[in-house]
Amino acid sequence: MFCGMKKLRIGVVGAGANTRLRHIPGLQAIEGVIVEVVCNRSEASSRSVAEAFSIPRIANVWQDVVADPDIDAICIGTWPYLHAPITIAALEAGKHVLTEARMAMNAGEGEAMLEASLNHPELVAQIVPSPFTLKWDATIKRILESGELGELRELSFSKALGMNVDSNAPLNWRQDRKLSGNNTLMLGIYYEVVQRWLGVEPERLLANGAVFTKQRRSGSGKELVDVEVPETIDVLAEYENGMRLSCHMTGVELGSGSDCYVIAGSKGTLRLDLKAGQLMKALLGGKESVVEPAAADVGDWNVEADFVNSIQKGDAIRLTNFEDGLAYMRFTDAAIKSLAEDSAWVSL
């Protein structure tokens, strides 16, 4: 276990938007933690981040950060294509790991990451969790455990974005299979929440999706490349107890769009409207009403503090451990496999 008297020195690899918004300031705000070195995609961008956050050093390649004997832990903020190689190398080098979501490019990489973490149980291995429902998670789990909704019949979520509407826009990293792997829109990050609430995986699923703009300019703008990652996707999954999960993710919708979860049971329904910031409950014979979480149940963003506490105090990682990360990677992989097989049912 990490000694509380010693400074915890963090190396940051990949300083994307969330890393700059959350991870670096979050870590720097914790007493005894020093963000010691940063490595971004170029020396210029690394230096820019270092100057913005008063980080003492930069590195030109991520391997130098992992090999640095003065670094205790690695914060990975790259796109998914580097999550597995950096994580595995860092764990083998004796360093704790906090990696940005999604876990990896695919379940195969996720399995390798989990194996590396199990080979080093003395080290903390954490994935940044899906944050959108943290305020209500404990309340929803309590309601589900109470049985007041009756037999669960259907759970659904939908998320509409406009990121893929403009056919003249270049390929973004989320559409680039070489950078994002099988991750599709926000399917994995929204499914992770379902898994968090239910604690079980579906038995099988099928998926249907489409790419409307078949080719886009590459990031460099020099050539047209095929678009492989779906611009819209629907997934239907079935659980052993007969419950269904219905997922709708689209990147081709402008306007206010949908952003919600619905849990329907034989005696009641929960509806979490993320745009309105409200959890609603309707029971048989009653009116729909707002559910306000008890103060003790309100969750919030504690990713960096949880990571440090796990290192210093040995607290178990809940949000999110590698086992749960692998589960949502299996779900995403199965959806991509179903698409490739003309929407065939795929077992998980």
Results as ranks from 00 to 15, higher is better:
133 T>A: 15
100 E>F: 13
130 S>R: 01
153 R>W: 03
238 E>M: 06
13 V>T: 01
289 S>M: 00
313 K>Q: 11
19 T>Y: 05
134 L>A: 09
80 P>Y: 10
171 L>S: 05
8 L>M: 08
198 L>W: 11
109 E>Q: 15
147 G>R: 02
64 D>S: 11
282 A>M: 10
248 H>P: 01
294 A>W: 14
176 D>H: 02
204 R>L: 04
296 A>K: 12
150 G>K: 00
315 D>T: 11
219 G>A: 13
75 C>S: 15
73 A>K: 03
49 V>S: 09
179 L>W: 08
111 E>G: 05
315 D>E: 14
27 L>D: 04
155 L>Y: 07
48 S>Q: 13
122 E>A: 14
162 G>E: 09
85 P>L: 05
3 C>S: 15
28 Q>S: 10
88 I>H: 01
126 Q>P: 04
170 P>W: 10
27 L>R: 02
58 I>H: 08
276 A>E: 06
14 G>I: 07
310 S>P: 06
88 I>N: 00
59 A>V: 05
244 R>N: 10
209 G>P: 04
19 T>F: 08
77 G>S: 00
290 V>T: 07
113 M>C: 14
326 L>Q: 01
277 G>L: 01
331 F>N: 02
40 N>H: 12
30 I>G: 01
304 E>L: 10
174 R>C: 12
183 N>E: 09
